[in-house]
Design a protein around this nucleic acid. Structure first.
Lengths: 196, 196
DNA sequence: CCTTCAGGTTAACGACCGCTAACCTCGCTG
DNA sequence: CAGCGAGGTTAGCGGTCGTTAACCTGAAGG
């Protein structure tokens, strides 16, 4: 993964602002003029960069799902052989993502149904692979869990970790590090309780 | 609370279908004609029962928040004196709600921003009271938790419990009872880990 | 039997929104 | 320096949507 130091392209600006606006007011609640205004151009200028409003949402959601899956696979490969450490790494990665890209997390489970069939299928497939990645690791750490139970547990822990948008909108939460650590402990506690 | 045996009124039919549709496609994604069609009347006929589309959403969200708070208060009063049992009761009540009224749970944290200012303030106030109810109980059971940490933990457990809409859309989950029990164990495990 | 009214109907208006068309204006580059 | 393409602009079309207006109907009540 190339660490990018160069300035963000116009496309990236647009995607970032669109993600924020979609998360705040919903896909249908945001007009193209607003997205344009957020990056300093106006309305139809966006069509020089995207085929349409739908295309922005699609690129966002596919990007999110792909990023999560790629990061997850990398972490599994890196800590191969020690399931406990792999699970910790997966949790840590997901928390980083949830804390750093809250609008994307919000979109991720809110606007999926607004996609064209083909895009939605792709996103669903990426999501499913990501879940299965977790399920395998969780079942290695807690062999007592049946596969359906493990899958439910994983979805529930995602719900827990993705709750960050509901934690005080601004600085009311006790610092990023402490929040991350609390979420991590709770996720592990939830899995442990599920596996008992 | 009067257990109702009589047939649902037209208003209630409308609210139920509107909740389902809003949860499926988002507030802006559903037209009044669709809501009307879902109850067998057409479009503008709804305006005999509601002042407008916004009013339906408002009544739904206020109703949800009020129901949660009322039920929570009742449960706290019933098991007074035994914090552990109170917490179990709160968790059980929230799970029942999440499993039985999935569309409402979805709306509850998805469409709040679409409300008029006054309604949104009311809903937020009810939500806050509900959270504080939990926070007090959680801090009695786990005195080591600071208030901000307890609040974060409560929000996160809500995220966990409210994940039910993401668990297999149909009968892929292993039975209602087993799911409820799994969620309950995980919630307690998450709190316990937070309080350590 | 006439009135009333709750609860419908269809038609239509006005606003908004996604998108296209047509045009402009730079900064390159041969 | 001509030309051209990338990246803007504004005007406007077509469709959708929430809401209102005007009208209809059937059941209840005096």
């Amino acid at each position: 993964m190339a660490t990018r130091t160069d300035a963000p392209t116009r496309r990236e600006q647009i995607l970032k602002e669109a993600a924020r606006l979609f998360a705040e007011r919903g896909f249908h609640g945001v007009g193209v003029d607003e997205i344009g205004a957020a990056v300093g151009i106006s309305g139809p200028g966006l069509y020089r960069h995207f085929a349409g409003k739908d295309a922005m949402l699609a690129e966002l959601l596919v990007g999110i799902s792909g990023q999560l899956l790629t990061g997850g696979k990398r972490r599994v490969a890196e800590s191969e052989g020690d399931p406990e450490k792999v699970l910790d790494s997966l949790i840590e990665g997901h928390i980083d993502f949830a804390l750093d890209d809250r609008p994307l997390i919000t979109l991720h489970d809110r606007e999926l149904d607004r996609l064209r069939d083909s895009d939605r299928k792709l996103v669903r497939q990426l999501q499913r692979q990501y879940v299965e990645l977790w399920v395998e690791v969780v079942r290695e750490v807690y062999p007592g869990l049946s596969e359906p139970a493990a899958r439910s547990a994983v979805h529930s822990v995602f719900g827990l970790l993705n709750s960050t948008p509901h934690l005080g909108r601004a600085g009311t939460l006790p610092g990023r590090g402490a929040t991350a650590e609390l979420l991590h402990r709770m996720a592990k506690g939830a899995f442990a309780a599920a596996g008992a």
